[in-house]
C-alpha cells in the first residue's frame, strides 16, 4: 500500500508531466515553417492535406500555430508614418480574395533611392539582384482544416476597416497576429452588421 506522501508525489509527478506536455505542445514554434516545408516539399513526391506529424495535428487541434519569422525586418510603422496607405502595397484588397503582398520590384521603386544604405534595404536589393521574390511568411492564414474561404473584397466594400482584423498597423513593425481571428470573432461581427451567418458563406 502506498503511503499518503507517496501517492501525493505520484499525483504531483503526473501533473508535472501533463504540464510539460501542454507547454511543449502549446509553446510558440519559432522554427521557420517555410524552411521545413521546403525540405518536405523536396522529399515528398505527393501533396496531401494530412498533418505532418501527430504533434502537428495536436497543435492544430489546440489552434497553436508557429510564429512566422520574416526574412526582412520590414516595418509597417515607418511606412505608415510616412503617409503611405495600406492599399499602396496591398493593392488587390478591394477587388480580390487576397490582399496581396508586394513584389520586390514594387519595394525597389522607392528603395532604389530611399534608405538604400540601410542593411535591411541592402538585403532587399540583393533579392532583386538575384531575381528572387522575398519569402514572406503568412501571418493571418487560416489552418486548412477549418476550411475558411475568406474574401477580402466584400469586407472592404462593406466598410470594414483593416485594423478591425489586423490591429493597429501603425504600431507594428513586421505584422504580428494582433487579433485572434477565431470563428467567434467573425460571427460576432457578422451578426452586428447583419451579414450572413450561413455556414457556407465562409466554409466550402
Amino acid at each position: 500500500m502506498l503511503s499518503g506522501s507517496q501517492s501525493r508525489w505520484i499525483v504531483i509527478f503526473v501533473a508535472a508531466c501533463a504540464l510539460v506536455f501542454l507547454i511543449y505542445v502549446g509553446r510558440a514554434d519559432t522554427r521557420s515553417p517555410r524552411a521545413d516545408e521546403d525540405t518536405r516539399a523536396r522529399v515528398s513526391p505527393v501533396f496531401t492535406p494530412a498533418h505532418r506529424s501527430v504533434l502537428d495535428a495536436v497543435r492544430d487541434f489546440f489552434n497553436r500555430r508557429p510564429v512566422p519569422v520574416q526574412p526582412l525586418a520590414f516595418t509597417h510603422k515607418v511606412h505608415l508614418a510616412n503617409g503611405m496607405h495600406c492599399t499602396d502595397c496591398h493593392t488587390a484588397v478591394e477587388a480580390a480574395p487576397v490582399a496581396g503582398i508586394p513584389g520586390v520590384e514594387l519595394c525597389m521603386t522607392c528603395h532604389q533611392m530611399i534608405a538604400a544604405d540601410k542593411p535591411e534595404i541592402k538585403k532587399l536589393a540583393a533579392y532583386q539582384k538575384r531575381g528572387e521574390d522575398i519569402p514572406w511568411q503568412r501571418v493571418y492564414a487560416f489552418s486548412p482544416t477549418v476550411h475558411v474561404k475568406f474574401n477580402h473584397a466584400p469586407h472592404i466594400r462593406a466598410g470594414v476597416e483593416c485594423k478591425t482584423c489586423h490591429g493597429d498597423m501603425t504600431q507594428q513593425t513586421v505584422a504580428v497576429r494582433a487579433v485572434d481571428l477565431n470563428m467567434g470573432y467573425c460571427v460576432n461581427c457578422h451578426r452586428q452588421k447583419q451579414a450572413s451567418t450561413d455556414c457556407i458563406t465562409c466554409h466550402y
Partner: peptide, 13 residues
C-alpha cells in the same frame, strides 16, 4: 439546409 435551399456540407464541422 442553407438559406438558398442548398444542402450545405460543412467539412470542418
Amino acid at each position: 439546409h442553407t438559406a438558398e435551399g442548398l444542402n450545405g456540407q460543412v467539412y470542418n464541422r
